[in-house]
Design a protein around this nucleic acid. Sequence first.
DNA 1: TAGTTTTGCTACTAAATATGTAGCAAAAAA
DNA 2: TTTTTTGCTACATATTTAGTAGCAAAACTA
Lengths: 109, 109
Amino acid sequence: MNLPVPGKPVRGSKTGQPVMALLDLLGRNWSMGIIWHLYSGPSTFRKLQDYCESISPTTLNKRLKELRESHLIERTLEGYALTQDGKELYELIEPLGGWARNTWAKNFD
Amino acid sequence: MNLPVPGKPVRGSKTGQPVMALLDLLGRNWSMGIIWHLYSGPSTFRKLQDYCESISPTTLNKRLKELRESHLIERTLEGYALTQDGKELYELIEPLGGWARNTWAKNFD
DNA sequence: TAGTTTTGCTACTAAATATGTAGCAAAAAA
DNA sequence: TTTTTTGCTACATATTTAGTAGCAAAACTA
């Protein structure tokens, strides 16, 4: 599957509405997990592999490439890091953490 | 793959942190798209299929089952609909729409 | 009330994506 | 210079998704 880019057809939108491209990108295995982790600071390939526990290097590498092409992460001297846009995106999804813990998880008691 | 449930090991967290279970669930193909669509009102199976353009009935049915078991959607007389939790979740991810359009998409001009 | 249509699926095959393991070249550390 | 760490690639296997067909039940229509 191609990189989902605003303005081009993606899964869920033939006109390529930006939010659909974003949901397509974020909906790929590990995308959000990588962003979630990188918010706490830059990380190396191997550290990301450890963090993500079960990710394969093949998939990790693919996700990293996609996220770089999407301007959400970049390579720095300290390893992979969120871009300004990546940080903003994290801050948008950050509230999911509290909600999952305080509200959603109650359903499974 | 099993349904990601808070408290049980999921991809990204052996201890099953709720947010990791949630990211695992939402990270599956079409999960967020379905929630996004249902916020505008209840929908039938066939309408969801149309909306999601390229989703296969197999996958749609699987996602619907998962989201129901996760208490995010339910069946009503008018079809599939968001639960209270589902609506809250939508409201958390809703800001992604504006950000994708106004900020993220600029990278691709 | 006998068709016709719509709906919510299931079955099946093919394609795409992810995992798991091994390993290697380059850079950094000792 | 040797050892370790890092960032991958290759390849085989497993899992997930797409694509198409079709069917039983419910809802509409004549």
